[in-house]
Structures are given as C-alpha cells and as structure tokens.
Design a binder for these strands. Structure first.
Lengths: 338, 338
DNA sequence: TTGTATGCGTTATCAA
DNA sequence: TTGATAACGCATACAA
C-alpha cells in the first residue's frame, strides 16, 4: 500500500495533526517544522488518500457536468471550456452524458449526486422542460448542491443560469432578413428545448410583426441534423408548397444543408439565396461559401458560469441569472448592407 | 446531514453489516430481510456516502480520461464514446484536458491518479513521445493502475493499446492516388504525434516506392487547422514551387481547406483535382463537394478499449495491443475506379 | 444467516 | 505551536 499520514508524521518526528495542518495550508505551524514535513513528503512522494480526505472535508473538489451528448460540436466546446475553467480553480470534472431520455437525465443526476460532487452543471438547454413536474428533479438536486444552468433558465432556489438572449438574436436577424432582397424567409429548427423555443419565438415575433402568420414559415426537422442529405430533402419537400429565398437555421449544420439545397437548385448565394446559421461553429469556415452565423458567446458564458459557481461555493451572493447578447458574424452567405 | 447506514439498520431492525451486505449484493442474506432493507432504503431515499464507500472498497468505480483538447471534433467523439461505454459498465468518467504541454500532461496525470481512479485512459496519440524519457510518466502511472492508450502504442507493463493502422491506410490511399489521373499528389499534415508519424510514414513509403523522394511531397502546416484561410494560403504558397493536382490530408479540416484552394483556382473537383481527408468526421458531409475521407474506426476502437479495460480490471488476461484497419469512404472529391 | 468489533486515512476539536 | 483523540460512514473478519 501507499504511505499514510502516519508514516510521514513518524519520519518527520511530529504528530499527524501537524502533518495534516501543513497539508491543508494552515498558518499556525512553525515554518521550520513545515519545511521539515514538506521535505519528507517530497522525498517519499506521499499523496493523501483521496477517499479519506473527502470524508473529512465532505468534498473532493469535484464538479459534476451533465450533458446530453458531449460529441455534439457545440456541447463539446462548452464542456471543454467549463472543464478548463474548473481546472484553473482547482476543481475536477466528473462528466456524464445522459442522452435525451428524461428518465436517464434523472437517473444520472442522482447517481452523480451520490458521488458527492460539490455542484452540478447542466450543459445545454435540454435539461429544462416546459412542465414544472419534469423539472422537479432539478429543484430537488438544488437542495443538496448549487445547480448551474448553461443556455437555460429556471427560477428555483440555488439554481443559477447563464444564457444568451437567443430570442433577441433571432428576432433581430429575422427583421434584417425581412428587409433584405431575399425577404421570403423560412426558419428551420430541430429542437424544442428551452433555447430552441426562444429562438423560434424570436423568429415568430419578427414575422408576426409584418402581419404574417409565423407558423407558416417555421419548419421543424426531426432527425439527425448531420445527415445533410436528409435535411436537404426536407427543404426540397418544403419548397413544393412554399416559396422561399432565404433560410435562417437554429443550427449551423441545418444551414449547411440549406446551402447544399441552394447548390442543387443552382441558386446563387448570397445574390439570390441567403442563409444564416446558429452557433458560429467550425462548420462556418469549413463550408463553401463560408456561413454567416449567430455567435452566442459560448466562451464568455462558460467563464461567467464558472465564476458564478466559485462565488457561490465561497458563500458569496452571486447573480441568479447572467444574460449575454448574441451577435451576427457575417460571412459569404449573406450580403446585408452595412 | 443525510442518512447513514446506521439509520437504515435501525429502521430496518437489523445490523449495519446486513445492510452493507444488501448494498453490495452479497448472496448470504435471507431474501425476506433483504426485501425489508431494500424497502427502507427506498422509502428514505438513502444513498451510501461515496467517500466512506471508496475507503472500504478502495475504489469509486471511476476512470480518469486524459485528453489534450476535448473540443476537437475527433477527440470529443472519442471521449463521448468512451464515457458511454464506461457508463454502461457502471463506471464514471473523470475528464481532464491537459493541453499540449508535456509538463501539464504529467501534472494532471499525477493529479488524477491521486484521486484514486481505477484506471487512466489516454485519448489521442499526443501522449506518446519519441523519447523513452518523456514517456516515463506513463510507465510510472502504469505501476499503480492499468493505462489504456487510444491511437497510440507503447510497450510497457500494464499499458494496453487500441489503435488503427494509420500507416497502411495512408499507404494504400497514396498508392491509389499515384495510380489515378491526378497522380501529382502532396501530403499535408499538422501533427507529429504517434499516429501523425504513422500516417506520414505510410505516405512516404508509397511515394518512395515509385522512386521519388517523399520528403519533397509532404508539407507540415503549423497552426490552427480550423483557420481555413490560413491553410488555403499555405497551399497557395506550396503551389508556387510545387505542381500538384491532388491532396491527401492528415485531418479532414486540412482537406476542406484544400477544397477551398481548388475553388479559388477554379479547378474542377474531382475531375482535375482530388482530395482525401482523414477521420471521416461530420465535416465530410458538410463540405461542398462532400469529402472523401479515411475512416479510422473510432467507435469500434473505443468499444474494444473499454472491453479490454473491463477485462483487465476483472483480472483477466487481455490483449496488450488491439489493431484495427481503416477504410476509405469515397464521396465527391475523388473518382477512383471501382 | 446475522451481529459485533475493528480498521480505513483523513480532518477537526480540544487540551497542553 | 503542537499533540492526543474522537469523529466520519462504510466494509469485513470473525464470532455467534
């Protein structure tokens, strides 16, 4: 077995209490004895037992990260930024991918909670549902540890939200499109998560604002957004009954498919056909032509989220909700006037 | 505080030993008392304290996953698959992104080791270096827990490797290209990791095989592979001194840039210019035209890796090295004869 | 099949 | 500034 605090105390000629003090950075230790102990620790390569430590401290400085699918381009980036920020604050990350089933979300949240994490971060808006009832597991979890929401909002005790104003972003960009040369705009989306509905709401508000019925211009795609051909077929189907010369998409991948659709139809982008994606992901610069997209400030959001969490864990009063504004990053699939 | 095993034993009218037995699935408990205990546990929502449990069992059923950058498309997928497989086997994942600095890799490996993980998985070939000395930290870690390598190889005790034969894949595809109409092929790459060098080796072998000097046809790009414009500029620079009409890339993102280069030059793909990427990532179907790419069997590899790990943890004899074969997925950027 | 008692390696309280 | 010792919550050897 490995060394214990007793071994170290013996070799250093002190009690375990003193060793423990040094280990935990207590100030009330004579610097000479501190040096002595540190040297012994170094020499024998001693590392405290994590379990025993957790038992004493009631914490292992570990944060649970829940995510429906960390292989998704956007969520992967979110998880990465969060992990890096946590690391910088001396915390580790317990990652758990739940999938989309509500049962699994609850199951894994409780599982990860039983591992005595110091907090839980819910990455992505898929964890918040419309019904109070379905969100109850989050409220329950928040009774034990602070719960942080990225891209979602819920007004519960001990739950903190960091999000981007998807509603305004989509509203603004829709208005812009409606005033452009390609004003026959449709909206395609795939998710009715919290942020999914906010985006849809922004689009609808803008369309309704010019006296049209938004429901006629918003189309939900059910399927894998990365199966580009399927999405393109979906658009071809829509085109049979609706005329459109621009597409706003809730995800970059959907927008990419719209570009493929335009290419198939021989439409010139952006002259005759304009496309706007969402997330400003790596796909934007990889597509031809490069994709205009809404940047929803992922990295600043994750910073804010982790900062807020650290404050909460230190007992400070922190904002319950942090709101960012998105911005349009124009590339080659649009030609708005400046 | 939350309930302890003592509370449960009291409420169920048995000793803590019996409760513990039920908790750990021991068979020598009368089924009626087992039922009784289970009911109490259910009723009060008792969950054992993870730290105390870990102390007794010397394990928390947690695996450390180390990765240089989990936001990379390929690595993110790898992490995701691994996490899912571990979950299916009742293990949790402690994720740690180290970045590319060797010091940090060592630091975090030791840190994560001190958290008493049952094993460590090194995702991606960046953890293995050419020098024995730089790999020593891995050998040391393997003295404590089994170390699993994805996409890398190292012949140490208690280290298990799962990888794809990148050498052969690149060799085969290069030969194919050399025999095609677009036989002026160059290879662009960005990494000299273990697998990076294997790919380069395969390309070189094929080119040398026809009596040419491979070094004249392989170009290393130093920079962010997702900065498409930079990569395109890099190719433009190469074109000043080298004639080429096909590109094999070590990463899909680099191949995408090659497509942009072709578009800029007005070259028809695949008639006059062919491109092959690597990883068969989502970028392939997102690009226009869709990208031919080498699939290196990520998901099967991760399955094998986790299966091997589970065997090792159960004390079974398992293969030290598992080798997969890549395969070419042809799309619109190549037109090889069948 | 069940219960008792001890150990696991820390932290923290109290006294010196 | 230090040391002795009692928790912490569970697993398990041993006894019954």
């Amino acid at each position: 077995m490995s060394l214990t605090i007793y071994d170290i105390s013996e070799k250093a000629g002190v009690s375990i209490a003193t060793v423990s003090r040094v280990l935990n950075g207590a100030t009330n230790v004579r610097s000479s004895t501190k040096e002595k102990i540190l040297k012994v620790i170094e020499e024998y390569g001693y590392a405290p037992n994590a379990f025993a430590r957790g038992m004493g401290l009631h914490s292992l400085k570990t944060i649970g990260i829940l995510c429906v699918d960390s292989s998704d381009i956007y969520l992967a980036k979110a998880v990465y930024y969060i992990e890096q920020d946590l690391q910088a604050n001396g915390y580790e990350s317990l990652l758990c991918c739940t999938g989309h089933q509500v049962d699994m979300k609850k199951h894994y949240l409780n599982l990860i909670l039983s591992k005595k994490v110091d907090s839980i971060i819910l990455v992505g808006s898929y964890f918040i549902s419309n019904t109070e009832e379905d969100n109850d597991y989050i409220r329950q979890a928040a009774k034990k540890v602070p719960v942080m929401l990225l891209n979602a909002s819920a007004d519960y005790d001990n739950v903190y939200c960091t999000l981007c104003d998807d509603y305004s972003s989509t509203y603004d960009v829709t208005v812009k499109m409606l005033n452009s040369d390609t004003s026959d705009v449709i909206y395609i989306y795939n998710s009715e998560s919290y942020s999914g509905l906010r985006k849809l709401g922004g689009f609808s508000e803008a369309v309704n604002g010019i006296g049209k019925n938004a429901a006629d211009y918003a189309f939900k795609y059910n399927g894998d957004i990365y199966k580009t051909e399927d999405v393109t077929a979906f658009l071809t189907e829509i085109a049979k009954t609706h005329r459109f010369n621009s597409v706003i998409a809730s995800e970059d991948a959907l927008a990419i498919a719209a570009l493929k659709y335009a290419a198939q139809k021989g439409l010139k982008v952006p002259e005759d056909f304009e496309v706007i994606g969402y997330n400003n992901s790596v796909l934007c610069s990889c597509s031809t032509p490069s994709l205009t997209s809404i940047d929803n400030k992922l990295e600043p959001m994750t910073h804010q989220l982790v900062n807020t969490l650290m404050g909460v864990l230190n007992g400070q009063e922190m904002p319950k909700k942090s709101l960012f504004n998105g911005s349009l990053v124009e590339r080659e699939t649009t030609s708005f006037e400046k």
